[in-house]
């Protein structure tokens, strides 16, 4: 798949983290997100149980782990889309416990979703413009008088246009969101998140379901983000991608952080390999509840994708397999580009 550029220059983020010891919960020199004792369980199943985690400002951190490790739940908790049972976390000085999702976004922490949320019946340009914050025309009374918001709207459109050019999507500005291919939607969602002008971007499996041609382009955009003063946390399955672009890797299994460190150190970590292999073989039953037994299936199974269980293990084992992420639920629309791309 991607050619691994082994001779790349170390990024600012990697330099800052060079002296940090690779143990779970280790403090970082300049953390933007600090998580303490965040716990969330569904029924009897603990989905997330993070004792302490810090994320370095300006670095690209990837979050990996087998299916059902609690990565998406962790994302939901951090961004206010779910509430933990206990725990606190601070983002850029803001206490985010009990803060609504929309306020989290306004503080500058913006997320994307594993199942892309391109707004189907809005055009690409409208999708983009929606991302801008502080719009005067978004207040109901002001919206009635175009004079109040027309000038700002023009500025926003200009900014959106620039981003679309950067993401090479400017030729499809009038397409509807629903007419894009799966990969284009991922691109659009990322570009739209940047319209918020965030200080931290949280990407949930940005490469899942994207065809190889677009993957490279997406990767480049992610790698670019720190140069725009943005911190990145992303969930990824493909170890190749993780090794390529991250400054730091955090590994989750069964809701806990079991390891963190620079990519190379993590790849060599025994516990990490165990977690992946264990998931694929010895411990499978725990991740595949049998509904016929009649026990209520916990909501946490939402992360359990249809059983392509070995993907993580294979990734680690041969380091080069080209694997799809979990299948997107949206169906055919994701496979084929829209009618007249």
């Amino acid at each position: 798949m991607a050619d691994r550029d082994t001779t790349k220059a170390p990024t600012a983020g990697a330099l800052a983290l060079a002296d940090v010891e690779p143990v779970p919960g280790v403090p970082k020199p300049d953390p933007i997100l600090v998580v303490d004792k965040v716990k969330r369980s569904f029924g009897g199943l603990t989905a997330v149980n993070v004792d302490h985690l810090e994320l370095q400002r300006g670095a690209i951190t990837s979050l990996i782990g087998p299916n059902g490790a609690g990565k998406t739940t962790f994302f939901n908790l951090m961004t206010g889309f779910d509430r933990p049972d206990t725990g606190t976390w601070h983002f850029d000085g803001h206490d985010l416990a009990n803060v609504s999702a929309y306020k989290v976004a306004r503080y500058g922490m913006v997320r994307t979703f594993q199942l892309t949320k391109a707004l189907t019946r809005l055009s690409v340009m409208e999708n983009m413009k929606l991302g801008a914050t502080g719009q005067r025309g978004e207040r109901i009374l002001a919206s009635l008088i175009p004079g109040i918001w027309k000038a700002q709207e023009a500025e926003i459109e200009e900014r959106a246009e620039e981003l679309l050019v950067r993401f090479k999507m400017d030729h499809m500005r009038d397409e509807l969101g629903g007419e894009l291919s799966g990969g284009q939607r991922k691109l659009l969602e990322m570009a739209r998140a940047l319209m918020v002008e965030p200080s931290m971007v949280m990407l949930d499996e940005p490469m899942a379901g994207v065809n190889p041609a677009l993957t490279q382009s997406l990767l480049e955009h992610v790698k670019d983000l720190p140069s725009f003063d943005m911190t990145v946390l992303f969930v990824e399955h493909d170890m190749d991608v993780v090794m390529d672009i991250s400054d730091w890797v955090v590994v989750m299994a069964q809701g806990r952080i079991i390891a963190e460190g620079p990519p190379a150190a993590v790849a060599a970590n025994e516990e990490v390999i165990d977690a992946y292999i264990g998931k694929g073989h010895g411990d499978e039953s725990r991740f595949t509840p049998t509904p016929l037994a009649g026990a209520p299936v916990s909501a946490a199974v939402e992360e359990v994708a249809p059983p392509s269980a070995d993907e993580g293990a294979e990734d680690l084992a041969d380091g080069g397999a080209d694997l799809d992420g979990p299948a997107e639920g949206a169906g055919p629309a994701d496979e084929q580009p829209g009618g007249r791309a």
Partner: peptide, 9 residues
């Protein structure tokens, strides 16, 4: 949820 993630109340 997409609207929420973009900071809309």
């Amino acid at each position: 949820d997409a609207a929420r993630a973009l900071g809309k109340n």
